[in-house]
Nucleic acid binder design. Structure first.
Lengths: 210, 210
DNA sequence: CCTACCGATCGGTAGG
DNA sequence: CCTACCGATCGGTAGG
C-alpha cells in the first residue's frame, strides 16, 4: 500500500491540489538523494544533506522513508524501472539491427549522462552499499534490461555486423559505455548522440558498417 | 624524508632484523586498507577496521600515517606506481603491435583482477574520496600510464589493426577493461589470459586479426 | 605501538 | 513535517 505512491507520475508539477503533494515531496527527496549519492557516495551523504537539499529538517525524511537504506533502494529500483521503460520503447520500434542498436546506445547514454540523470550511476557505483535483501528486487529488473541488449547483439551477429554475441561481448560493451559516466561533462565537446555514434563505430565490424 | 621508507621493497619478508620492521608494518597497513577500501568503500571503512586487520589497536595506525586520507593517498599513489612499472616493462620489450597490445592488456588485467590486487580498483572507484590536494600527485603518474596505451594504439592503427586511435577509443577500451573488475571472480570460468584474448579480439579489426 | 579519551557527527525516534 | 533529543560510533590525540 505504501508503495502505491510510486505509481504517480514523477515529473508532475507541484502546484496542484489534492493528494499530489505528498508524492511530490517524496520525489524531491529521491532526486536530491540520487544527486548526492552520486556526487559524494552513499556513506558520505548524510540524512541532513538530503533534508537540507529540499528544505527540510533532519528528522523529516523519515516521514517518507523508513531508513537511509530505503532511500537508496528507492533511488536504484525506481531509477532502473524508468530506464527499462525507456529502453523497451526503443526495442519495440521495428528497425534494422544497426539502427536499433544505435537507439539502445542512445537511450542508455541518455540514462547515465544527461544532467540530473543520477539514478543509474548510483546503481552502478554504489551497488555494494545496498543491503543484501534489497538486491534481488533490483536484479530482477536488471535481468530484463540486459536481455534486451543480448537480443540485439544476436540480431547484429546474424546480420554480420558483430563477430561474437556472447555474454562477454555484452559486458565489454557495458563497461565501455558505463565508463563514460566517469569522464563525460555535459556541455563539453561532444554531444550524447555524437558519442553514441563513435561507440557504435567502435563496437561493430567495419566491413559492413556503412 | 618520511617518504623515503616507501623505497623499501614492499614484498620483503617480515622476519628479518634491522630497520625492515617498520616498513613491513606500514606495508601491511596499506594492503589491509586497500582490501577494505575496495570491499566496503573508503567512507564505510573505519580506522578500527584497518587496525584490527593487522592486529593493532585503533590509535596505532596514526603512528604510520598522519590521517585516514593519507592512507588512501598511499594506496592509490603507490599502487599506481607499481602498475606503471609493470606496464613500462611490457612496453619496453620489442614486439609487433598486436603482441605488445596483448601484453598491455594482460598486465592491466593482472593489476585489477588478481587476488589481493586491490590498489587500482580503489583508485578507479574511490577517486572522489581523495582530497583535492592529493589528486595532482596521482594524475601525474596516470598520465604516463595512459601515454603508453595511446602510443600502442597509434602503432595498431598504423598496422591497420585499428580504425581510430583517438582519446575516445582509449577511453572506451579502458572502460571495457576496468569494468571487468566489477564482475570477475577469481577461480571462475575464465582465466585472466583468456579474458585478455577475448578483449583483444573484440577491440581489433577482424580482417587482419590473425 | 598501547591506553584512555575527546569533540563532533551520525542515523534514527518520541511526541506533538 | 518540526523540535528536541539519544546512543553509538567516528577520526584523531596526549602521554607514555
Amino acid at each position: 500500500m505504501a508503495r502505491s505512491s510510486s505509481r504517480r507520475a514523477p515529473g508532475s508539477p507541484a502546484g496542484e491540489p489534492g493528494n499530489g503533494e505528498e508524492g511530490n515531496r517524496r520525489t524531491e527527496l529521491i532526486r536530491a538523494a540520487a544527486r548526492l549519492f552520486r556526487e559524494k557516495g552513499y556513506d558520505a551523504t548524510t540524512i541532513r544533506d538530503i533534508a537540507n537539499a529540499v528544505g527540510m529538517r533532519s528528522g523529516s525524511p523519515f516521514y517518507h522513508f523508513k531508513s537511509k537504506q530505503d532511500m537508496l533502494r528507492a533511488v536504484m529500483s525506481e531509477g532502473l524501472q524508468q530506464a527499462l521503460a525507456a529502453l523497451e520503447e526503443v526495442a519495440a520500434r521495428p528497425a534494422p539491427p544497426r539502427d536499433k542498436f544505435r537507439g539502445l546506445i542512445r537511450a542508455h547514454l541518455a540514462t547515465i549522462l544527461e544532467p540530473s540523470a543520477d539514478f543509474i550511476p548510483v546503481l552502478l557505483y554504489e551497488w555494494r552499499a545496498l543491503d543484501q535483501e534489497s538486491r534481488a528486487e533490483v536484479i530482477a529488473v536488471k535481468d530484463r534490461y540486459e536481455a534486451i541488449w543480448q537480443n540485439c547483439l544476436r540480431e547484429l551477429k546474424k546480420a554480420g555486423l558483430l563477430r561474437r554475441d556472447g555474454k562477454m561481448e555484452r559486458l565489454l560493451m557495458f563497461g565501455a559505455l558505463n565508463w563514460i559516466a566517469q569522464w563525460y561533462k555535459p556541455g563539453g565537446g561532444l554531444s550524447i548522440d555524437q558519442i553514441a555514434d563513435q561507440a557504435l563505430e567502435f563496437f561493430l565490424c567495419p566491413a559492413r558498417t556503412k
